[in-house]
């Protein structure tokens, strides 16, 4: 063996950023390219939500609801797609990554685990957007939904903010699921219908009454959808809060969840190292 001075390798901020972005892209690649190879999945992912759109739209029609409500259903289906992606491909995914032994590989690599979560988010958003765009377009065409968008930039901006807050929440949940340690599947299952109900996926959230709706604002989807309903459809009476307040709410939620994700990840990492729980497999 030889004697050698320690080589100190301190990355510059730019280097560190580049390395982490590389890692994010590596992880996102699976969702941007890989997952889309399964054409039958793609088909099902587009068609399944169309069923629920059809069911809810036809139900509204059978009850002679105003025509904007068809549009609410479509908007709801769009957000539902992202929510399901957050639940299963973000929150529960980390749990499965551990079972596959990936989590260990991520924690061992010279990058921030946040980079992996960012990659998963970016990939998930891409993956879902492709599918949801197809679903929404088809749904809107089939049921002749009319959108009246006066300010497309505001709509896009709010949509983007909603996604940031949603995936921030997904990133936080990914770590919390692991800390909680229960079967991820149960949790994600629990957070489906109740959240659709509370966030007002098919109807103006106002209908739930003030206090319930206010509580539901903790789910980023609620604020995003309420704001979009006000901006995308003619009926101006449906809003729960002025759009400006909702934008502020989304910004705050986005910031809180991103910081929360960072903290939760740190906590998880520390806990895992203390308890030796990064893998479930016995080796």
């Amino acid at each position: 063996m030889r004697t050698e001075t320690r080589m100190e390798t301190t990355d510059t901020v730019a280097q560190a950023l580049r390395n982490n972005l590389r890692a994010s892209w590596g992880r996102a690649y699976v969702r941007v390219i890989g997952v889309n190879r399964e054409l039958s999945w793609l088909f099902l992912d587009i068609v399944m939500p169309l069923f629920s759109i059809a069911a809810y739209v036809l139900l509204y029609r059978s009850m002679n609801a105003p025509r904007e409500y068809d549009g609410f259903v479509i908007l709801g289906a769009l957000m539902t797609a992202y929510w399901l992606n957050v639940l299963w491909a973000m929150a529960a995914q980390f749990y499965w990554e551990r079972e596959m032994g990936h989590l260990e590989l991520y924690m061992m690599a010279p990058i921030s685990p946040m980079a992996i979560l960012f990659g998963m988010s970016f990939g998930g958003i891409f993956q879902t957007t492709v599918r949801a765009a197809a679903t929404v377009t088809m749904g809107a065409l089939i049921f002749g939904v009319h959108f009246s968008i006066a300010n497309p930039l505001a709509v896009l901006g709010i949509f983007f903010l909603t996604l940031v807050a949603l995936y921030g929440l997904g990133m936080t949940a990914a770590s919390l699921y692991l800390v909680y340690g229960r079967d991820a599947q149960n949790l994600s299952n629990l957070l489906q219908e109740p959240v659709f109900l509370l966030s007002g996926v098919n109807f103006p959230v106002k209908a739930l009454g003030f206090w319930t709706a206010a509580t539901a604002c903790f789910i980023p989807m609620t604020l995003g959808m309420d704001a979009l309903r006000q901006l995308v459809f003619d009926d101006k009476t449906t809003g729960f809060m002025p759009v400006g307040w909702e934008v502020l709410g989304l910004v705050v939620t986005g910031a809180v969840t991103l910081i929360g994700a960072y903290k939760a990840l740190k906590y998880l990492e520390d806990l895992a190292k203390r308890q030796g729980r990064l893998t479930l497999k016995w080796q």
Partner: peptide
């Protein structure tokens, strides 16, 4: 090949 590439990206390659 893609998988190996993906893992390599975690090392800044």
């Amino acid at each position: 090949r893609e998988t190996l590439w993906m893992f390599s990206q975690f090392y800044g390659l």
